[in-house]
């Protein structure tokens, strides 16, 4: 008798568990397939803009007019719908079509040179310029009058034309005007 009671309780439990399971699963099924997120053309283009057409010549993927590129943009749309990140999509294209699909060389291995060489050359140029300037630089032993004259010329714009010793053009201008009058 006691055992029968136990069996009833167990049966009830099983029913409850199944009912709970059915209740829990049913809404999940009702929501599945999960509503596919709507991916706009702008979202697709934003990703495609970071990539170059794998087969065309130097054409960003978002503006490439070929059929192949339209299909790749569609692929990006699907990947975005599936929740891929921009980096994952970029990596997918790199894996399948090589590093040329990126708008700039990846920062790895030999390609680091793309980023290192120009600043190195510019720095070397600056160093040469510094050395050369140092060699050329001979500060004027300015007399008090000279410096003051130059500063006075700048201080008063109205006097610029008259005190044009440091401006070759205005000097010429004055000469020219003198000749005419």
């Amino acid at each position: 008798m006691k055992t029968r009671w136990l069996w009833h309780v167990l049966g009830l439990l099983v029913v409850l568990v199944l009912a709970w399971g059915a209740w829990g699963v049913a809404p999940a099924h009702a929501a599945d397939p999960t509503p596919t997120p709507v991916i706009t053309d702008d979202q697709v283009n934003a990703v495609a803009h970071t990539l170059y057409c794998p087969v065309c010549e130097n054409t960003p993927l978002d503006v490439c007019g070929t059929q192949a590129c339209a299909q790749w943009r569609e692929l990006i749309r699907q990947q975005l719908q599936q929740g891929w990140t921009v980096e994952q999509i970029q990596q997918y294209f790199v894996d399948n079509y090589g590093a040329r699909v990126l708008a700039a060389p990846p920062r790895e291995g030999f390609w680091w040179l793309a980023y290192v060489v120009p600043p190195a050359v510019i720095l070397a140029g600056l160093y040469i310029l510094y050395r050369t300037m140092k060699q050329w630089y001979r500060p004027r032993q300015a007399t008090a009058g000279e410096g003051e004259a130059a500063d006075a010329a700048a201080a008063s714009p109205s006097e610029n034309a008259a005190s044009s010793a440091d401006d070759d053009y205005l000097r010429r201008l004055e000469e020219e005007l003198r000749r005419r009058t």
């Binding site: 590093a99 708008a103 990846p106 390609w111 793309a114």
Partner: peptide, 20 residues
């Protein structure tokens, strides 16, 4: 010239575009 160098050295062409 970097894409040419890259192709010569690594066998892979790269794009040097506006971001660079």
């Amino acid at each position: 010239i970097f894409p040419i160098l890259s192709e010569l050295v690594t066998g892979q062409k790269v794009t040097v575009g506006p971001p660079f």
